[in-house]
Simulated assay, not measured.
Amino acid sequence: MSVSIITKEDLQEFKTELLEDIRNLFQFRSTEQKLWLKSSEVKELLNISAGTLQTLRINGTLTYSKVGGTLYYNYKDIEKLLNKT
């Protein structure tokens, strides 16, 4: 059975590598597009008003799901809408 001695420097190096890996994970996630967007995010993305968003919902141009009191829109549906125009 062998014994390994861990020094402060080893722990510091491990900590640095671990923090770098965590930072990389967060950077990767922030570049991913969310699958479901709230109304405020859709209005900002499309640069439209609340009334226009409501019209898109009413006439069936943009589908949505309601969870509790919040409306969610599928990002893929928004992409399709943008590609049509």
Score class of each variant (00 low, 15 high):
residue 74 N to C: 04
residue 22 I to E: 08
residue 32 E to S: 09
residue 45 L to C: 05
residue 38 K to G: 03
residue 35 L to P: 04
residue 44 E to S: 13
residue 73 Y to L: 02
residue 54 Q to S: 13
residue 64 Y to F: 07
residue 70 T to I: 10
residue 79 E to N: 13
residue 69 G to E: 10
residue 68 G to A: 01
residue 13 E to H: 00
residue 44 E to Q: 13
residue 54 Q to H: 13
residue 30 S to I: 09
residue 81 L to G: 03
residue 76 K to E: 10
residue 36 W to V: 11
residue 50 A to C: 12
residue 12 Q to H: 09
residue 13 E to T: 12
residue 30 S to C: 02
residue 36 W to E: 09
residue 73 Y to I: 00
residue 81 L to W: 07
residue 74 N to Y: 04
residue 43 K to Q: 15
residue 84 K to E: 14
residue 30 S to P: 02
residue 39 S to C: 03
residue 78 I to Q: 00
residue 66 K to Q: 08
residue 72 Y to G: 02
residue 22 I to Q: 05
residue 73 Y to Q: 02
residue 76 K to A: 10
residue 43 K to C: 11
residue 11 L to A: 15
residue 52 T to H: 10
residue 81 L to E: 04
residue 30 S to K: 15
residue 53 L to W: 00
residue 64 Y to E: 05
residue 37 L to H: 05
residue 61 T to Q: 14
residue 58 I to R: 01
residue 19 L to A: 14
residue 15 K to A: 12
residue 60 G to I: 01
residue 15 K to I: 13
residue 19 L to G: 06
residue 12 Q to F: 09
residue 56 L to R: 10
residue 64 Y to H: 12
residue 32 E to W: 05
residue 15 K to M: 10
residue 54 Q to E: 14
residue 28 F to M: 10
residue 72 Y to F: 07
residue 65 S to E: 14
residue 42 V to F: 00
residue 38 K to S: 09
residue 46 L to Q: 00
residue 20 E to Y: 11
residue 68 G to W: 06
residue 31 T to F: 03
residue 54 Q to C: 08
residue 16 T to Y: 01
residue 78 I to T: 01
residue 62 L to Y: 02
residue 17 E to A: 11
residue 25 L to A: 09
residue 62 L to E: 02
residue 32 E to F: 05
residue 25 L to W: 09
residue 34 K to P: 04
residue 57 R to N: 09
residue 59 N to H: 14
residue 12 Q to T: 15
residue 76 K to T: 06
residue 40 S to G: 07
residue 44 E to R: 12
residue 17 E to T: 11
residue 12 Q to E: 13
residue 14 F to V: 11
residue 48 I to V: 10
residue 50 A to S: 15
residue 32 E to Q: 15
residue 80 K to D: 06
residue 65 S to R: 14
residue 35 L to F: 07
residue 40 S to I: 11
residue 58 I to F: 08
residue 44 E to Y: 14
residue 16 T to W: 05
residue 38 K to M: 00
residue 40 S to V: 12
residue 38 K to Q: 05
residue 73 Y to P: 05
residue 31 T to C: 01
residue 72 Y to S: 01
residue 65 S to F: 09
residue 35 L to R: 15
residue 54 Q to G: 06
residue 41 E to R: 07
residue 59 N to T: 06
residue 66 K to L: 02
residue 15 K to C: 03
residue 58 I to G: 03
residue 83 N to G: 05
residue 76 K to W: 00
residue 33 Q to T: 07
residue 79 E to W: 08
residue 18 L to V: 07
residue 67 V to K: 11
residue 71 L to Q: 06
residue 79 E to H: 07
residue 78 I to P: 03
residue 42 V to I: 08
